[in-house]
Amino acid sequence: MADVSTTDPAGGARKLSVASWFMVACLVALAVIPVAIYAGGNAFWLDIATRLVVLSIAAVSLNLILGFGGMVSFGHAAYLGIGAYCVGIPTYHALFGEFELIATNSGIFHVILAVIVSAVFALITGAICLRTKGVYFIMITMAFGQMIFYLFVSLETYGADDGLVITSRSEIPGIDMDNPLAFYFLCYGSLLAVIYLVHRIVNSRFGMVIQGAKGNEDRMRSLGYSTYVYRLAAYVIAGAICGYAGALLGNFTSFISPDMMDWAASGELMFMVILGGTSMVFGPVIGAALFLLLEQLLSAFTVHWHLPFGIMLILTVLFVKGGISGLLARMGRSNG
């Protein structure tokens, strides 16, 4: 059976207790530490934490299809870009006119647009990608990601490859988006909501089907499942969530460029998922944290900071089955 990772939802409560405690500790730390440091007068770590939380949402959404669904998408960053442009383009037109239909600073509108456009893109490309398997699937998802990348590179109006400055952030009633703390808690709350949402999905009837289809699609079909439609639905959900993360990312950086969505960015998301571990919904958050930390540390020493990442990824895949969270889960088991 081609069961690559250690997706092991069986008796989760029994086995994952160490990992669950670790998750709670991480989430509490995320709520407290960056805020405390910020209150102490240092804005840098809140900045890093915001990026961490936003990328975590993207990575958790990727894990829904990659870890639980076995769909190794190499184009997931496209949705980050789509989401960000769904903030940038309407605010651009709100400022410079034209396209009155979408010209607005309304954050609700931006988010809805980001989610819908991402879902539609996922539906169309997923319908094609999911006809293929294995390495072909990886290649074709990457190709669609690059297609979107080149689309935005060619759009002169929106800055082409120089990118687009978002002059004013989304306006959301009751939230001061220009206040870093308020914005951080919006992102943090979103992460909690997304983790819970994905957790519910993974354990639902739907979740059982996509996990079954990952383990053994032929078996699922002979049991009577039309696996294709379920996988496609999962692909669309993951894209929509990542589009939402993209809308947050656009607001965070106040700047969007096609670089946010090229294949290297997709590779970074995959790195977070695989390093963090695919067997837990929370796993990619650990991966994202490690990624950002390493990026900070290594980029201080060398411009070739991607190289150690590649080596680490290979080591993880070879030796740490199920990534860091898989390791934690096993610790939980051997401790009783």
Binding site: M1, D3, T6, T7, D8, P9, A10, G11, R200, I201, S204, R205, F206, G207, M208, V209, Q211, G212, G215, N216, R219, M220, L223, G224, Y225, Y230, A233
Partner: peptide, 24 residues
């Protein structure tokens, strides 16, 4: 399905014939 329990395996088979699985 190796990663699932024995009961999960059979429940998945039951589920295939208990209406659609778009329950999230």
């Amino acid at each position: 399905f190796m990663g699932l329990t024995v009961l999960d395996n059979v429940a998945l088979a039951v589920q295939a014939h208990t209406g659609h699985s778009f329950h999230f």
